[in-house]
Amino acid sequence: MTALLDIRGLTIDIARDGGPARVVDGIDLAIQQGESVGIVGESGCGKSLTMLSLVGLLPNRIRATGGSAMFGGRDLLKLGPKELRKVRGSEIGFIFQDPMTSLNPVIRVGDQIAEALIWQKGLAKEAAQARAVELLELVGIPGPAERARAWPHELSGGMRQRVMIAMGLAGHPRLLIADEPTTALDVTIQAQIVDLVRELKDKMQMAVVWITHDLALIAGLADRIAVLYAGTVVEDAPVSAIFERPTHPYTRGLLASLPTLAGAAMERLPSIGGTPPEPGRRPPGCPFAPRCAHAVAACAEAVPRLAPVPGSDPRHRVACPVMTERAAA
């Protein structure tokens, strides 16, 4: 089976005075049809940029400089602006982080959804508005016909995020990219949104990429998790394997720093010492080596490649020769 989306060796650079600085360094990531993948990593690790680069939404001065991203038989990185515009919305949908500011304050929510349908699919105004109400109903907004006429500021954060999801789904995309859609919401609302996206994923048979830094949230949601560190995938495995046999020292660090109910109440949560490398000042070799307790001399020499973890799930791959060797032993 060919993957829905196959990213190979993607590199992204920021143009700066004094030469480009690399922020994404050779990401390999495949998303299967109908799969739900979590991309986890701390701020600035390149997880959002990777996804934005697919549809040509990178900010000024930031460019995808290498690699390929095959989607539906085409390399997205080689498409022109017009073709990319057609991919956006109708083939790859987006949900963004902040529902409070991601809706245009001067257009009623129903019209905002309808607008996308009119320009994307060429629907007539009435048909688009009727479809907008259906979409609002689909994302669980009560009284969708009335709510379609509401202004964005009249809705709560959770409601707005539902509207954003409706907009993301309007074009019936095969891939939905959710960029930290719950970060700005209450925990209870978070759970509702997570359930909603999971349900819609099955109903609409699309693949979902969930960008987050919240491992606990992703555990109940994704089939697979890719852990990003400093612009590379350091570990890529089914959810169960990540939680049962975390292999990369960085993944272990992330899991160790999650609060647990069993932990002593007054104890400080463990954290990973040091900070990620700045773009343009990447160490040679493994980017995590300077912070890694298990680093050996060889780590600073060659960039490790993803390799299967012996004895674990066959899809479990990690970019750490040291740990791979230990697992084999």
């Binding site: 939404l57 919305g89 987006f94 991601s102 607008e115 994307q120 907009m167 993301g168 309007a170 074009g171």
Partner: peptide, 17 residues
């Protein structure tokens, strides 16, 4: 630069719209 403009781009709307 506001998020709703990025969101509109992600919907595939044209620059003119």
């Amino acid at each position: 630069g506001r998020p709703y403009v990025t969101a509109a781009r992600a919907l595939g709307l044209t620059n003119r719209i």
